[in-house]
Design a protein around this nucleic acid. Structure first.
Lengths: 246, 246
DNA sequence: ATCTAGTCAAGAGCAGTGCTCACAATTGTT
DNA sequence: AACAATTGTGAGCACTGCTCTTGACTAGAT
């Protein structure tokens, strides 16, 4: 642990480094397959080693522990989700804030339904005994919420956002909460006022709440055949809750 | 598996049955402790057996498998949450619908923060390889949402509910979605119109989304010191979203 | 009181897991 | 070709869920 960071960013010149990087990529790829097939808690380094065609102890040359592999998969999934969201949002005109918001929500939902195990790793209950190292996950882990507040802040600056949405207008923002919101506004360089920001947080959590219920099967197997329509309705309400004009 | 159900409902007269029931209670109690301490995925029948002062294979006399114990704990947790919600809601006057709604939300959040592992078992990512048997969990599992729609339906019948809340009024409810809502209205004997019901589903999922983010640490360790205030704000907005007058 | 039948705990055992370590094989570099 | 760093091997430890046989016990019927 002298200074491996510059080496990691270097061009991987030596064959050893190239081979090592390729092996780690293989391990992550096989881990992703196992994650998708059997879920995060069933992820086994021994099984990954078998698929890699190597004895179990060999993978510890490349991955420190099972947790380390989980962290790699976590960052991988966060970036995949972030890419999907950025692509979907970027496909809409820059001034179509409502369209961008709906694209964001739909992108998260589609990715979650396509990769339920990865989604569970990111937004489900934390896997036991595993604490995601903040310094490696906060960056990719906040891409979605950063994109969301970027949309809301852009709409606010463009004058396309109601003061607080029709309902949040008369809900108090206490002094303590206002202090938190001021911190966030400062750190992210936002212009939106408190009621919009507070409602935005609720919209953020509500979006993932609706998606989690669907992905995790909380609706039950029978209720809500028309889940696309249900989610579209929720997105419409949430857009209004955020203050977006339609 | 001839007909054990009537025997289970009988008075447990014989000493054998009494001792057996007591042992199962002990197992569930120890399981709850382990669940709270180490989480659902780390729940080990062997560890439970050790705490029970018995060899590991002995617990299989009382509990068919690890899944069986998880199901017992699941039902236990659902009922505990349902009891907490019912008590909190029942403490408010019957016609104070907004108060009842806020009491429901606060009760769920308080229980979740006090029992994060149990909450994760109920509303987090499903534990791998474990499928909750619907016939034993749907009853207690729906108590919270039943209590929620009871509040909204009562408010509607009492004329204390806006047609759809200020924002949901102009969000379409498509024909497909209306069919689902009609089913739900029929099964639960509700009177609320489609926009209220659709918004109610969103309020339901949003409530758990906000609580899950807080319990599962999605907010991050630093953001939102004033989490009580944040949740109170969200509850206020959600009440208005549901159409409750304040 | 004895016999019988049901119940229960014990312990061995199987297959799997994460992880460590000493040793051997390989491979890039000198 | 020789050296040294790296990588793969296999044994081993402690743990898990779960099964099965064996022996002890107990409750009710004779």
């Amino acid at each position: 642990m002298t200074d491996a960071a510059p080496a990691a960013e270097a061009a991987l010149r030596t064959p050893r480094e190239r081979a090592r990087a390729r092996t780690i990529e293989d391990i992550v790829r096989i881990g992703r397959e196992h994650l998708a097939l059997h879920g995060a808690a069933a992820l086994s380094l021994r099984a990954v080693a078998r698929d890699l065609g190597v004895v179990s102890s060999a993978v510890y040359r490349y991955v420190e522990s099972r947790e380390e592999l989980l962290t790699l998969l976590l960052v991988d999934a966060y970036n995949e989700l972030g890419d999907a969201v950025d692509a979907a949002v970027g496909a809409r005109p820059e001034n179509d804030f409502t369209g961008r918001f709906e694209a964001l929500g739909a992108a998260v939902r589609n990715w979650a339904l396509a990769q339920p195990a990865s989604y569970a790793l990111l937004f489900g209950s934390p896997v036991p005994g595993y604490q995601a190292p903040a310094e490696r996950t906060t960056g990719p882990g906040t891409r979605v919420v950063v994109a969301l507040v970027a949309i809301l802040d852009g709409a606010w600056r463009a004058g396309n956002l109601s003061e607080a949405g029709p309902h949040a207008a008369d809900v108090d923002v206490t002094a303590l909460l206002a202090a938190d919101l001021a911190n966030i506004r400062g750190e992210m360089g936002l212009a939106v006022p408190d009621p919009v920001l507070a409602s935005g947080v609720l919209v953020w959590t509500s979006l993932f709440g609706a998606i989690s219920f669907e992905v995790f099967g909380q609706y039950g197997p029978d209720a809500f055949v028309a889940r696309d329509e249900l989610f579209a309705h929720h997105l419409g309400v949430l857009a209004r809750l955020a203050g977006l004009r339609t």
